[in-house]
Simulated assay, not measured.
Amino acid sequence: MTERFFLYDDLEDTKTRFVSFMGENQRFDLALVRSDRYYGKQLVLDIQGSRFAIIGTDDLEEEGYLEHAFQLESKDAEELRAFLYEVI
């Protein structure tokens, strides 16, 4: 067997916030991971939907980003966007 070639193998301290809230149409169960690795952005994991994205305020302003990343309808994405603006 050949030797494994790592592109990187780092350990990093992170701070994770678990939050669950009910939107008008659906429940959001999220893990927000803060780290120095993503240049001020946070890793947002949708636990129920098994999706994740690296998100900063610039991503929240990009049209259709949350809809695509989390496979949400526009109204649900707006609720998530409003919450993320408060915490990111």
Rank of each mutant, 00 (worst) to 15 (best):
E3C: 03
E3Y: 08
R4P: 11
R4Q: 14
F5L: 10
F5H: 07
F5K: 14
F5M: 06
F6S: 12
F6C: 04
F6Q: 10
L7A: 13
L7K: 15
D9M: 12
D9W: 12
D9E: 14
L11A: 07
D13M: 08
D13S: 13
T14K: 13
T16D: 13
T16Q: 08
R17L: 12
R17I: 14
R17F: 08
R17A: 10
R17W: 05
F18P: 00
V19A: 03
S20P: 00
F21W: 10
F21C: 07
F21L: 09
F21I: 09
M22H: 08
G23W: 11
G23A: 07
E24W: 01
E24Y: 03
E24D: 09
N25K: 15
N25D: 10
R27L: 12
F28K: 08
F28S: 07
D29S: 08
D29V: 10
L30A: 05
L30N: 05
A31E: 15
A31Y: 07
V33S: 08
R34C: 00
S35Q: 07
S35H: 05
D36P: 12
D36M: 10
G40R: 03
G40Y: 02
K41A: 03
K41C: 02
K41W: 01
K41H: 05
L45C: 08
L45I: 15
D46C: 10
D46E: 10
D46Y: 07
I47M: 15
Q48T: 13
Q48R: 12
Q48I: 11
S50Q: 15
R51Y: 12
R51G: 06
F52E: 15
A53L: 04
A53V: 05
A53Q: 03
A53F: 06
A53E: 04
A53N: 05
I54L: 04
I55H: 07
I55M: 04
G56S: 10
G56N: 01
D58Q: 13
D58W: 06
D58I: 11
D59I: 00
D59E: 15
L60Q: 02
E61S: 04
E61H: 05
E62S: 02
E63C: 01
E63L: 06
E63T: 08
G64I: 00
G64H: 01
Y65W: 13
Y65D: 02
Y65L: 12
L66R: 01
L66D: 00
L66A: 01
L66N: 02
L66M: 01
E67F: 04
E67H: 03
E67Y: 02
H68A: 03
H68N: 05
A69N: 06
A69K: 10
A69E: 15
L72H: 06
E73A: 13
E73C: 02
S74A: 13
K75W: 06
K75N: 09
D76K: 07
D76C: 10
D76A: 14
D76Y: 10
A77T: 08
A77K: 06
A77D: 05
A77C: 12
E78T: 03
E79T: 09
E79D: 11
L80Y: 11
R81Y: 09
R81D: 14
A82Q: 11
F83Q: 05
L84Y: 06
L84M: 09
